[in-house]
Nucleic acid binder design. Structure first.
Lengths: 129, 129, 129, 129
DNA sequence: TTTT
DNA sequence: TTTT
């Protein structure tokens, strides 16, 4: 049993690629901690998410920096060797489900004056909560 | 929202210490993946757990290498600088609840011939599921 | 171990009361199912939530019909006897954490023309995600 | 988002059947509450679980009264009309994953003197945690 | 009885 | 390196 559920905002636009023949989409979530620190401000955990296949396609198409999402997945720890021979570990959440919790804004670097029509075509409402 | 639930076995005995005036107990869980790899064997994720205060005391007293536990907690990512100035990240689960799912064995390096009396005193049944 | 995590919208305004000397707040969430039915529309589960103490006060003050929230809690099943002597069971989620996922609208039956000042006083932003 | 994770013991043997052309298996879990009541004893919630298809077959074959399992699923509330025309609601967890957390005992009403061979054939170890 |  |  290995289940992770997170709600947070994307720290930057997602990165889409292909790996092993499957669509893959990666992004990082800023997940706020439940308490404030001694300086009185709320810290966040920056958690790497990876999605595959159809879910990767939906995420790559609709997500963008700042969007609020809920993720359910599995915590995975990968181990690898660096160039100088030392071992490093990477922790990431392999998403099994992603819900979009806010309305899309215009995507960075796409259109300067996004129209309702453009937003209609992106049609984030196909994948509402 | 940041919730992690894991079931797995301790890879070694837990490490108890004190930090910031609070009892702390650390251990690593081997959490089996839901599928088998191409060689047909089941891999595992090795996930670091940290517990604090009373929960740390209970874990330090009753847990041991090989024990099966369920953990509910929060996925935390800490960032630190190495001696040579590079940045590293550490992911760990801060446990809010730990359930013991099997009966205790004798603890490594304690007694060669543990008696039922000894086990009775340890009394893991105080903290049954 | 008994953990439930839900995201959904309140089907009506929450009900605040006092029980056993503690503040209590009840509401029902409409939680959409992951799939659509044979008629092609998405059904929902209507799940009763109960909160206590400080969390009840925050929920009673800030929540309203239609608001989107995330709830983490425990699934509880209570059994009771009806007037005619038959046994009934009630399932509800006892919330341990509630996150508000959207901006407040004006509350039903409060002010016909809510002003930004009024919203400022309610100050839902004290309890943002 | 609708995720439930439970650990508990079966209150009786599971019931296997077929519904809508699919294998279905139902059982009830006794899930202990985290606290003790005023009489000092630990109560439990009795939560109905339903599984479908291959998972139903595995559960029907290997589970029995008293077995300790972990369930991940979705909380579903069904509404129905009674003979006298009143409305009732039923809450149950639709399991997506079930893990067996202890070794099988001999099943009620099967063999008086189960042998290791019999247990070997049941081979619960195919589905270990 | 149900939310968007 | 980080989101609102």
């Amino acid at each position: 049993m290995n289940t992770v559920i997170l709600i947070g905002r994307l720290t930057r636009d997602p990165e889409s690629s292909t790996a092993g023949g499957y669509a893959r989409c990666r992004f990082t979530l800023a997940v706020e901690r439940p308490y404030t620190n001694q300086q009185g401000d709320r810290e966040a955990d920056f958690i790497d998410i990876v999605t595959w296949r159809q879910l990767a396609e939906v995420c790559g198409k609709h997500l963008a920096k700042g969007r609020l999402v809920a993720v359910r997945g599995r915590l995975q720890v990968r181990s690898y060797e660096t160039e100088d021979g030392s071992r490093r570990r990477v922790a990431e959440v392999v998403a099994e489900d992603v819900r979009f919790l806010d309305k899309p804004r215009d995507r960075q670097g796409e259109s300067e004056q996004p129209s309702t029509a453009d937003l209609g075509e992106i049609d984030d409402d196909e994948v509402p909560f």
